[in-house]
Amino acid sequence: MSARPKIRKRHVALGALILIPYCVAFHIGTLKGRAAEEFAKEGNAILGVARLATAYAFSHEGAWPPMDSAGRRFAFAPNSIPEGFTIGQEFKYPLEHDAQAVLLGPIGRHGALPLEPSADPASCFYVGYAVASEAEGMALVDAMKRGIADGRDITVEAGQGTLGGHVLYTMRRELYKTLAADAVTDNEVPKVHATFPVVIQRPREGHAWVVYSDLHAEYLPYPGPFPLTRAFVEALR
């Protein structure tokens, strides 16, 4: 190791050869990363709707909220749970818009923050039953039309129930245990929750976010595989 190595021209050139592409790549990567974060915000809002349902389940013995059977809509039953809220801008007088709810502080540097809906309820469908295929989904739509999807398990024709059984199960926490107890599955498989879509975004520009009952989200093409088949989405509408 010499005391102070000379900086040669070729070292400078080599450094530039490495650093310039690095800086360009870093810049592109950062922009792509920010775009991905922005893109994920919409999915997060839809995920928030599913989280509301799980929050409801904690105070209702594990049962997810019922669907709007009176209005025959794939949405939460009216007054079952509040609309999804997220924290909004700092609360200032006079109010620039109607605040439905306000979180009083101190919260960080804020005295109060209004709560704003995280997702427009009309922008997504809530599927309060465990359906994993188009046949099961269409059986649920049929039950909804007949006004029997009222928050209880529904007996349907064999093969059209949850996972090919004869019962459409309402969504609930640890449903996999019930499915195993009723011999719908051979044993308790928690991963089965990853197959039940619970909140489906209304498709836009050929894609939609889908949140499953294990609270993982996927951005899927429309029309595409269940639950974003054309027939099922049209029926939900």
């Binding site: 592109i28 792509k32 990363g33 994920a40 915000k41 997060n44 995920l47 989200a217």
Partner: peptide, 14 residues
């Protein structure tokens, strides 16, 4: 920098 892998507390790996 690139959105290739999950980062800690980044959008809950949505």
């Amino acid at each position: 920098a690139f959105p290739l892998f999950d980062r800690h507390t980044w959008a809950d790996n949505l």
